[in-house]
Nucleic acid binder design. Structure first.
Lengths: 136, 136
DNA sequence: TATAATACGCAATAATGTTGCATTTGTTCT
DNA sequence: AGAACAAATGCAACATTATTGCGTATTATA
């Protein structure tokens, strides 16, 4: 069994979820891509064909188990990624290049958690835009 | 003429846009609401009835003139707000309460602009979630 | 007030996401 | 391994949000 697949299986086991073909494929696709992608991109990246609805429901169950979360970029469709590079309080910043349009996960950029009088801040998401190393 | 209306007119004049009923109404609605709202909410908040398409096209023209921008919250529909509280490089943080669901603009919370080796960061957006003063 | 440029409204369509229900698959227990 | 049950999947239908085309109305300017 490939490393990716056993990794995916372990994630599902640890989360107490049924280990289904669809979930394995989706997790492996997200592991391979390693950036936020849409349902449609996931569907195309899969080894086997699955229905759109299955993908959405898979993402939903993985989301409830905190294995996956949504990333909101400046596009109509939601993007999804694995949560393994995020802490509970803070997702890593996402950078989108205004030139080439690519989005990068800046997993090694740690920003201080904001605080504001009167508010309890439990979660922070940061979106950055500009020029990536290739385009600048 | 009311203060809101002349404010709206000035914004349009300064941007070199036609001063139309729809644009005036939309800007005034956004000034009154003072938080990110959807096309549907805008339509309901208007003094006069306008077609959905007109609202979208109005938001588009105001967006191109940098008077308005989109805010992406954890909801399906895009939210829009006036840009007058944002600098070119940084939109103010938005806070959404996980309890009551309300979203607040934290216009007085200034966060340092992130920087990352190799990247030119031109714009930063921050989204926060947690408990608001009323709900905590 | 005539003219040209632009915006508006309506109808149709596109893109994305969700629900209901019958069938299939995964897990557990023997 | 096989039976039984819970859960996931596929398909069709539908819901929500956003966009496009085009004829008509409004706005700015001279």
């Amino acid at each position: 069994m490939k490393a990716l697949e056993s990794h995916a299986k372990n994630m599902l086991k640890a989360a107490g979820l049924y280990c289904t073909r669809a979930r394995l494929c989706v997790i492996m696709a997200l592991l391979r891509e390693n950036r936020p992608i849409t349902q449609e991109q996931i569907t195309q990246a899969l080894d086997a064909p699955f229905d759109r609805v299955t993908i959405y429901r898979t993402l939903d169950s993985l989301g409830k188990a905190d294995l996956v979360h949504r990333v909101f970029l400046e596009e109509r469709a939601c993007h999804y990624e694995l949560s393994h590079h995020c802490s509970k309080t803070q997702c890593h910043p996402h950078f989108t290049c205004t030139q080439c349009g690519q989005t990068h996960c800046l997993t090694d950029l740690k920003l201080p958690l904001a605080h504001h009088h009167g508010y309890v801040i439990q979660r922070q998401q940061v979106r950055l835009a500009g020029l990536c190393p290739q385009c600048r």
